[in-house]
Design a protein around this nucleic acid. Sequence first.
DNA 1: GGTCGGGGCGCG
DNA 2: AAAGCGCGCCCCGACC
Length: 556
Amino acid sequence: MPGASGAALLCELAADGSRLGEPALAADFAEAVARYSGPGTDSVRWVWSSGAEHYPALLRAGVRVSRCHDVALTERLLLARDGQAAEPDLAGRPAPVRPGMISQGVLFDSAGAEPPDPKEALGALLAVHAEQLRRIADDEHPAKFAALVAAESAGELAAAEMSFAGMPWRADLHDQLLAEMLGPRPPGAGLRPARLTELTAQISAALGGRPVNPDSPSQLVRALAAAGVRVPSTRFSVLHEIDHPAIAPLLEYKELARLHAAHGWAWLDTWVCDGRFRPDYVVGGVVSGRWATRGGGALQIPRVLRRAVVADPGWVLVVADAAQLEPRVLAALAGDRAFTQAAAGGDLYEGLATGFGGDRNQAKKALLSAMYGGAGGEAGQLLAVLRRRFPAASGYVEMAARAGEEGRVVRSVLGRTCPPPSAAWRAITEEAADSEAERDPGAGRASRARGRFTRNFVVQASAADWALVLLAALRRRLAALPGPGGLPAWRWDPQAPHLVFFQHDEVLVHCPEPMAEAVVAAVSEAAAEAGRALFGATQVRFPMTTAVVGCYADAK
DNA sequence: GGTCGGGGCGCG
DNA sequence: AAAGCGCGCCCCGACC
């Protein structure tokens, strides 16, 4: 850590969170962590206010930790469980922060604003931590909730390490791809690439010659109407049905303009440095427990740009994604026998298809409708089939939907809890009405919308639980592989395999080519471990599709 | 000059 | 009658 601010106040704790001995001042936190990391210290778990705040500096000092309890992330899980989900009040003020939380911790930084007394800050942190352990033990399912806390905390470690390592990214290939599609890089920042200018001219010409800004949906709707084409919107699904000379250049424009705006040269300049893209992950940033990222659109990288993700010379990428994760999770959650049978094989939808006259596509559509709350078109009929053939699975999501419609909360398999309904939702849905006819139609709409949310939450959040446990298990197994440099596990080893990307149900490991086989094995062991951690002895399998490639685009 | 909601679309 | 979940990000255009 830079300068004089790398000091830390440390205190050993017992398993119940009580102090063992007096706090000790360490002049160099990284060195202190290293001291606690020798052989026989596998069970050490660092308790700190926030890994996001403290771990990157350790990594820069070449030190990694294997386990931690992240007080900030844990507090958020507990608050959500106890129905205290943050909701901005009418004045837009942020939710209150509990004393001793978040900003104060094991570490103090003399460079910052007037620091709190370190001993007091440490005392507050320890008190919150001990209280968290009690609250976890009080959970309806303490072991599962503790597993969730451990996985969330490990996720923060993995996130910091992935940002530190960075995803290999060839700026030269990215630039080449952009040039092929858009024309050469424009000389100035605000200038449009040649191809977009050409397409804009073609669109305007096809619509009668008056200039039209293809980025403006309202201008497009008007210009199309003037040309005799009436459209309710300008989205792709609407436009691509239409037969008109303006449509082809317009659709091409939309695709390219988006690429240019979201992941074009400006993105490259901002986000890729020294051959690495370093996303800023927000662990648990989505209510379902999925991660988000801050800037960089790391979880929306267009598939075409995977060409630019290339392993270093002598290295490979192990690309692993969970096959049909959400339906498998539903099968295990519901314990549906027939469904579980289908999920015991390789292709889940194929296994379900017998229930739908052998039509795999129909089976898939029915399942997605059940998980998302779709009801329109043929979905209704397919859902009826699903209900008959797989009663426990559809019953499970129907129950979740009903809970949501009634304003209750639902939980993932490890106990992540969805937010309670907003005050506005309650006001709309609880409005008294003398008869169904007088009821505000908005009430039914809001109620059903929340039902779709909770219906999906139980599946999406449980799938996120699974992926998080997978990530934590894989991280641990990778660290245990004998590294080529022979460094101990507590040292960050740039020569060893490491996670570089995580996207909901997919992970990338960058590793020396000779170690690829060991990494692939670690992935499948981690997947099996995640299945056991969530569901015990279920028959449902959670297979990973794994590819060892030089370039991300060559996976699957 | 800024903020903010909507349209649209990338990813899962 | 409404009409499939979760995000982040871009641009536009209305508004202050």
